[in-house]
Design a protein around this nucleic acid. Structure first.
Lengths: 110, 110
DNA sequence: CCATAAGATTATTATATCACTATATTAACA
DNA sequence: TGTTAATATAGTGATATAATAATCTTATGG
């Protein structure tokens, strides 16, 4: 069957390779607790320990550690050990666009 | 890379209610095929039929219909019947921020 | 009414993610 | 060496999401 609407080769749709690469990252970030963690780290502006993040997120330690690992595995966060603390900070600042978007829509239309 | 959106001291964290509301929407959009569909509809600028979207996404009909339904259920797309075609268009334009972000990072590092 | 085209829904099976509990690691220090 | 604080990992069962195939619905034209 003939194409009803042909897509020209010159069209600049984002290539599937890129979409398949970034989708999991966005998808992993798009989790309430992980967004909260990122929001907190973004606002603090400096590396924060797991304990501090637990307090900010009001969540249990294993859950927080798990979320931190997911974010670190995706390259969104980086961790650095300091004595017996581990401090996390944002490594991939492009995710902040997501937060900026959410902040600007806070309380807005559904 | 500098801050995308400066944060004033004293600002509070995004409330969990908001995060829990927007996370599923972002998460649902963050799927390669759905991103491709949104990219296509965004670039076309006008409602497109399922057949046209199938061609653009290079995907089977039931899969495309399913993705369209997910996006419509989330309020990201809206549909309108025209004879025996159904034309979809973007209803929630804030998701375009995501696409803009991806486009700007296309072909970038890592 | 029948056939066909355009879409939508359902069923199935595999995989992924969730929160939670329990346990393990790691480093400081007594 | 033993203890404790800080963090990480592993196991578990419930729920969610994936791609695919098969079937159903709706609208048009003969």
């Amino acid at each position: 069957m003939d194409t009803i609407c042909s897509i020209e080769p010159g069209d600049s749709l984002i290539d599937m390779e890129t979409l398949e690469r970034v989708a999991p990252v966005i998808r992993n970030v798009a989790h309430p607790l992980r967004l909260r963690i990122l929001d907190y780290l973004d606002r603090e502006g400096e590396p924060r320990s797991v304990s501090e993040i637990m307090a900010a997120a009001d969540a249990d330690q294993p859950i927080v550690s798990q979320q931190l690992r997911i974010l670190k595995d995706q390259g969104v966060l980086m961790a650095r050990r300091d004595r017996n603390f581990v401090r996390y900070e944002i490594a991939e600042r492009s995710v902040l666009l997501l937060l900026a978007c959410i902040r600007s829509h806070q309380g807005a239309r559904k």
